[in-house]
Amino acid sequence: MVEELLITARANPKIDPSLGIWSWEIPVYLFFGGLTAGILFFSAWMILRNRDEETPFAASRYAIWAPIVLSIGMTTLFLDLEHKLYVFRFYTTLQPLSPMSWGSWVLLIIYPLAILLTLATLRKGYPMLAGLLEKLPFGSLALDLSERFKRPIAIWTIPFAIALGIYTGILLSAFSARPFWNSGVLGPLFLVSGLSSAAALAVLLAKQHGERLQFARIDLGLIAVELLLVGLLIINLHTGSGPQVQAVQQILGGPYTQLFWLGFVLVGLLIPLMLGWLEIRNLNPVVFLGPLLVLIGGYLLRQLTVDLGQVSTWTNYASQFNPQLLELLP
């Protein structure tokens, strides 16, 4: 038997919960960041493929959601910083070994791209908004220029959208100190989940039946790939090093089991998969339920991953102390 006792206090999240690394702010950012990546990817893709007729929403009305959603995400990201006034320090350097440094530069590039893509589609998608913008100085010029360079903007958007979607997963997977995160599957999993969330949002927002059906079909494929990646992640961790095996036990019988399997896998993936399948056969009575569950599942994936990484660690003091013994004292 080994028993380890801390005989002086230490600043550690496991002893002082107020020092927990990341709370709700980061999962919210990871979700909205992934969603933005998906929105930009689909709008740029449909623009490049000239799908104005078949997918009018994605080609001209979807891009405006990207800067809105990204702004919410970046706000919560900022809220999480403990030393907020020094946020500019992200942009005084590029640290080649830090995925977070790469990510902050990707954000700096994707933001103007999202605004340019919105401007390029504004006259077609939202004529009233475009009219308002034209009244501002340089408004017409901005719209004209963005429309003129619509294709190059869309071409540049694709790789940066993919970078935005995948870097958050790579960032977490690069932390070897947190066994649950330390898997290369996390990057692709987050990317596919972000694309799936964006496809689901398109089903919710598009008006034309044909377009909704097309995105329902796309989402069906993405959910299937996501299920495969979740399976690979579990196999990867379950056959990994001791701390990884211990980490994955949290969802294989441990305290996170129910939320992971019932909340994320069943509600967030399997039920939408079934509803999507019914939808493309025109058998689905509740069209909006599936995509809504996909969005909930997308958020749950981020929250669960962030939490599970933080409860998995190399430093486990082998404490056998049983507080109930104190009650036996006279």
């Binding site: 403990e82 030393h83 977070m100 070897s176 430093t315």
Partner: peptide, 29 residues
């Protein structure tokens, strides 16, 4: 270096010894 630290907490996540702390009330690591 507190003058460069944003308090993003990546280093806390990266330390297998859990040896880092958040300075209160300043917020740097």
């Amino acid at each position: 270096d507190p003058g460069k630290c944003t308090g993003c907490k990546a280093c806390i996540a990266a330390c297998p010894y859990d040896a880092r702390l958040i300075m209160r009330p300043e917020g740097y690591i």
